[in-house]
Structure formats: structure tokens, C-alpha cells
């Protein structure tokens, strides 16, 4: 019986590629973070934890961490409300369903860079659509959306949430369709109104899908790069600089690969911690769904 070794030739190419391009770099970046490394000048010396000591006292790192957390929280929250709301409206609707879904899906197909360029033009201070409409309505004139620290972070959040909401919408809608209609009929028979039925029946049954959706979107928002790099470049005054944007600037702006790697490891740890937290949540949450399937 030579059944077991039979699987390896099939798995080998994938494992080789994942090992070379995902596993090896992940280990190498940890090693790099223990070095002072400036490739163009041939500098490479082991410095132990010096980069990490610097990291803990680096105000720019802490600000990037706070910015990343704020970006992630608000962006994912918006997507959940906006995408979830649309999903509830589309649920059990048959008329024009395909057309509506395709329309709502549109932003998700676009490159992040395109989304950034669109919002840059919409928000352009002199002659952009938003300020022109505000002016016509007698609102405040000439707001510099991307140049004003209070507005800029929200502008990049909007540009990102606009593009990623369809993903949330799709998954929540699929989750809603998995709930058998009889459950709601039973709740109605028991005298539950629509709101109570939503809170006590729909939400708990939707919970596993929501957790998976939130996990994917949170990790994605945490490592955001394109929208911010193109829209604000991290400015004004560093107020939209997230961990990935900061690390990128240290890598390829100042060529300090050692400290850049330290920032990258910090981002990696944040992602792993969050994923771990979600999985811990998911463990009890998926059980009823697995039984129901």
C-alpha cells in the first residue's frame, strides 16, 4: 500500500513556492530586524535588539500605530454598516437582483490606485465636485480635504471603504441566504416583531459569517498601503501615515532595511495578534452553524 506518499508530488510545487516567497521572507525579515542594514552602501552588522529599543521610543511609530488602529476600526465599521445595510435590503429580493448586485460590486473590481485618484479629483479644493456642490449649496468654501489633518484621515478612510464595502456586502448577503426562512416564521408566530426577530434570530445565526468577514477585512485594512500612498503619501504632517506606509518610507526612502524590517515585524505581530483574537472568538461561534449545515 503506497497511498500516503502519493500526496506529496502533488503538494510539492505549492509548498516550494510558498516556502520561498512567504515562509522564507517572513523568517528573513525577523533576522533583518536584528541588523543595521543599508544595502546600497554594503552596510550589514548584527545589532541585536537595538532596533526594537529604538522602536519603543519612536514617537512616529506610536503615531503610525494609532493611525492604523483608527483607520482599521472606522473603515471596517463603515463597511459593515454600509455593506450589511445593503445586504439586508437586497436579501430575498428577486426583481433586478443581478443588475443591482453587479452595480454594487463595481467599486470592488477597481484598483486601489484608481479609487485614490477618483477621490483626489472629487475632493480637489478648487474645482472638485465636492467643494463645487458645497459652494452651490452655500456651505463652507475651499476646504482643503487632503491638506487638513482633521479631514485627510477621513478622506482616505472613505476612499478605502468605498472600494471594499462590496466584499462585506457579498459575504453578509451569502450569510443571510443560509438562514432558513422558517426560523423567522417561527419567530413571527411567537409574536416577535421585525426588530426583535433581527436582533434575536438573524444576528446570532449570522455571527459566524460576520466574524469571518470581519477577520478578513480587519487584516486587510491593517496592512493598507495603496490608497494612502497615492492619496496623501502619509501627510499632512504624518497624520495619515499607517504602519505599512511608514515601513515603506524607511525601506525605500531612507534605505534603512534593518529598522524598516523592525516596523514590518511590528505590523506582522499586529496582524497575527488580531487573527488570533478572531479565531479565539470564532471557536465557540462556528459550532451551531456547523451543526446546522
Amino acid at each position: 500500500m503506497t497511498r500516503r506518499p502519493g500526496a506529496w508530488p502533488f503538494l510539492a510545487p505549492a509548498l516550494l513556492v510558498l516556502g520561498a516567497v512567504q515562509l522564507y521572507p517572513t523568517l528573513a525579515v525577523v533576522w533583518l530586524s536584528l541588523e543595521r542594514r543599508i544595502p546600497v552602501f554594503g552596510v550589514a552588522e548584527f545589532v541585536g535588539l537595538a532596533n526594537y529599543r529604538f522602536l519603543l521610543q519612536d514617537p512616529r511609530f506610536w503615531q503610525a500605530l494609532v493611525t492604523t488602529a483608527y483607520f482599521t476600526l472606522v473603515s471596517v465599521g463603515l463597511e459593515l454598516l454600509w455593506g450589511g445595510g445593503i445586504a439586508l435590503l437586497l436579501h430575498r429580493r428577486r426583481r433586478l437582483r443581478g443588475l443591482l448586485l453587479a452595480g454594487f460590486l463595481l467599486p470592488w473590481a477597481l484598483p486601489g490606485v484608481v479609487s485614490a485618484k477618483m477621490f483626489e479629483w472629487l475632493l480637489y479644493p478648487d474645482g472638485g465636485l465636492v467643494n463645487s456642490l458645497l459652494g452651490a449649496a452655500g456651505g463652507p468654501a475651499g476646504i482643503n480635504w487632503l491638506g487638513d489633518p482633521a479631514w485627510a484621515i477621513h478622506a482616505v478612510i472613505l476612499a478605502d471603504a468605498w472600494r471594499t464595502t462590496p466584499f462585506v456586502l457579498l459575504l453578509v448577503l451569502a450569510g443571510l441566504e443560509l438562514i432558513p426562512p422558517e426560523v423567522h416564521e417561527a419567530a413571527a408566530v411567537d409574536g416577535a416583531g421585525r426588530w426583535r426577530s433581527f436582533v434575536h434570530v438573524t444576528l446570532p445565526l449570522l455571527a459566524p459569517v460576520l466574524v469571518v468577514t470581519l477577520l478578513i477585512r480587519t487584516i486587510d485594512a491593517l496592512r493598507v498601503f495603496d490608497v494612502i500612498y497615492v492619496l496623501t503619501g502619509g501627510g499632512p504632517a504624518g497624520t495619515t501615515e499607517t504602519l505599512t506606509v511608514y515601513a515603506y518610507r524607511i525601506f525605500f526612502g531612507t534605505l534603512q532595511f534593518g529598522y524598516g524590517a523592525t516596523l514590518a515585524v511590528a505590523t506582522l505581530l499586529a496582524a497575527l495578534l488580531l487573527a488570533g483574537g478572531y479565531l479565539w472568538l470564532v471557536a465557540p461561534a462556528t459550532r451551531p452553524a456547523a451543526e446546522g449545515a
Binding site: A14, L18, V21, Q22, L23, Y24, P25, T26, A28, V29, L32, P39, I219, L222, R223, F225, L243, T244, A247, Y248, F251, F257, G260, A261, L263, A264, V265, T267, L268, A271, L272, A275
Partner: peptide, 21 residues
């Protein structure tokens, strides 16, 4: 295999850059 997709690309970019160079 699925867990690999959780890795932030910024963590991979510098070793890959050095390798490509």
C-alpha cells in the same frame, strides 16, 4: 496554506527585494 494569506506584504517585501537584486 490559508494562514499565509494573512501575512502583511510589507513583511515580505524587503527580503524579496534583496533576493531579486
Amino acid at each position: 496554506i490559508l494562514g499565509a494569506s494573512l501575512l502583511p506584504v510589507i513583511a515580505l517585501v524587503s527580503p524579496l527585494y534583496l533576493g531579486i537584486r
